[in-house]
Amino acid sequence: MKVLIVDYEMGNLGSVQKAFDHLDVLSIISNDHEEIKNADLVVLPGVGSFQKGIENLHRLGLFDLLTQEVVHHKKPFLGICLGMQLLATYGEEPVHTEGLNWIPGKVIKMTPPNLRVPHMGWNNIEVKQDDYYGSISTKDFYFIHSYHFVADDPGVISSTVNYGGEMVSSIQQGNIFATQFHPEKSQKAGLQVLKNFIDHHA
């Protein structure tokens, strides 16, 4: 199985690859169009602002290519953190920006009453669809974000997290799975989620 981690110059891709190494899953980090077309499974990680992320996808010619591969050719896709948020119709970080629009919805600044922002640290999720959450040892995962995904169709929400209210913590729709938390930073439970996703599509 060929796992490709998309290099669109948005943050720490090495830690995602390290997690796959731990699972003995071979992965490459690349933004080469042919490599992406040849990959069996595509991972879009990323930290940083929504606007910058979309800008980079356009600049590298990945916006349309990824849409073609994931939406039309149904290639298994895993988004992490910003890589989940970019799937929305639009985001507001720092200004209104059109997203990939694979999952209709918006990404807006969180405003939890009397709580600190960013939402930073370990928080437990509530699983709504358990396809990728089998055998996890704990439901605590590592979050670090100030904006959150509001999905138009609640049916795509695969888990939620509570921080001054319910927020989306992962999304699932067909071949697409994406998490707001960082599985690659969430120790055993995080590795298990990655393993479940890989096994499911192996």
Binding site: G11, V47, G48, S49, K52, P94, P118, M120, I144, H145, S146
Partner: peptide, 8 residues
Amino acid sequence: SEVFGSQC
């Protein structure tokens, strides 16, 4: 923070 995001 503009380049890397304030969360980091």
